[in-house]
Simulated assay, not measured.
Amino acid sequence: MSHRNPSPSPPDACAPSEASVLPLRPFVQESGTTRALHFSEKVIQSRMSTLNPDALDLEYTRMMMGFVLFTPAPADILMVGLGGGSLAKFCYRYLARSRIEVVEIDPDVIALRDAFLVPRDDDRFRVVQADAADHLRGVQDVADVLLLDGFGDAGIPGALCSAEFYADCYEALRDDGILVINFHLNHPDHREYLDRVRASFGSSMFEVVDDDMTNSIVFACKGELLDDPAAAELKRPESIPKDAWRQLMPTLRVIGATRELK
């Protein structure tokens, strides 16, 4: 099973094991000015506007970028799940001082990177084909931001929603590092997943839910950075270009308000 971006509303599942589900090969569909990555006709894994390929076309991706309220200029960003590369492209373009590593298990997804205009590997960007659970095991202090968006057609692979994996995520973060996870709110074990995150990160976490009550974006911090009152000011940091800030601002207002209520 592969680790990549879900649609705004697929049925979420934390799969019992990768071996129990037959892998589905990704394919690309175009409709008007949008290009989408699919594993089945009914589920969109990722979507891109061909008129603005670096824009974040799906709301949940803009929600995940809420980490810039707390860490606007991370030195190192680690992502789990490439999909159509929406988050990777946005960070590569607008967080120009950040190094970005994307871990993707499925070579067929990586093979479609050109179709979604994902940048070539260079000195500050690379895509690694690996199982993220293996890749993060034993790793310490390598990232300021860790984005988990690892979905397949059947949901989140079991290895990527285990207590052990979230403990590894904690260790992989530097002091005041931020973990951002995309969940689906309608999964019956959603609260259990939050408890697993809380077991490693304690009370330094909060959840933001989209307007459709579908996606749940969880922010958890290795430290107390989420309590920084400066995050509520919603003032554009110098490290964030105006174009990026305009795209994110409506969503950042929601995140800021939710954080104040936590």
Rank of each mutant, 00 (worst) to 15 (best):
V208F: 04
R236I: 07
H184F: 08
D176W: 06
E164L: 12
D12R: 05
F67G: 00
V43F: 12
F183K: 04
P72M: 00
W245I: 03
K242A: 14
F183R: 04
G152V: 06
D212T: 07
P23K: 06
G155I: 08
E101A: 06
V43R: 00
E260F: 09
P188Y: 07
V43D: 06
I178L: 12
V109I: 12
G158K: 08
D12K: 06
R198L: 14
V208N: 02
A111G: 13
L69H: 00
S86N: 04
A36T: 15
N182I: 01
F183H: 15
E101K: 11
A132K: 01
Q129T: 11
D210I: 02
L225I: 11
S203K: 15
E164H: 12
A130W: 07
E233H: 13
H135I: 04
A230P: 02
I181L: 08
S9N: 14
P23V: 10
V109G: 01
L82Q: 01
P26E: 10
S9A: 11
P16D: 15
E101Q: 13
R246V: 01
L69W: 06
F67A: 00
Y166G: 02
S7N: 10
L69Y: 04
I105H: 00
G66H: 02
F206D: 09
G81I: 03
D114P: 03
C161S: 12
T71C: 11
A163V: 09
R120K: 14
P157G: 10
M63C: 06
L24F: 05
M64Q: 03
E101M: 09
A132G: 09
D141K: 10
L185Q: 13
S204M: 10
D12L: 10
K42I: 07
M63Y: 04
R246P: 01
L22V: 14
T50R: 01
A88F: 00
G256I: 11
N182P: 06
E164Q: 13
D175V: 10
A231F: 08
P16R: 11
G223W: 10
V145G: 03
R174V: 04
G138W: 11
L112G: 03
P250Q: 11
Y92D: 02
I217C: 02
R47W: 04
D195F: 08
R62A: 01
Y170P: 09
A133P: 05
F70W: 02
R4H: 14
Q129I: 09
F219H: 00
P107W: 12
P23F: 11
P26M: 10
K242C: 08
P26F: 10
M79L: 11
V218L: 15
L78H: 02
E224W: 05
R99F: 02
E260R: 15
I255V: 07
I240R: 06
I217E: 01
P157F: 08
A36K: 05
E171K: 14
I178N: 03
I217L: 15
V43S: 07
L225G: 00
E224N: 13
Q29T: 05
V127G: 00
F90Q: 00
T258S: 14
S9Q: 13
D57S: 05
L261I: 15
F219E: 06
V209E: 07
R198F: 15
A159T: 13
D176R: 14
V208H: 00
I217T: 05
V208A: 02
M64E: 03
A257D: 14
P11H: 13
A73E: 12
N215H: 06
S86A: 15
A13V: 11
E233R: 08
F125W: 07
H38P: 02
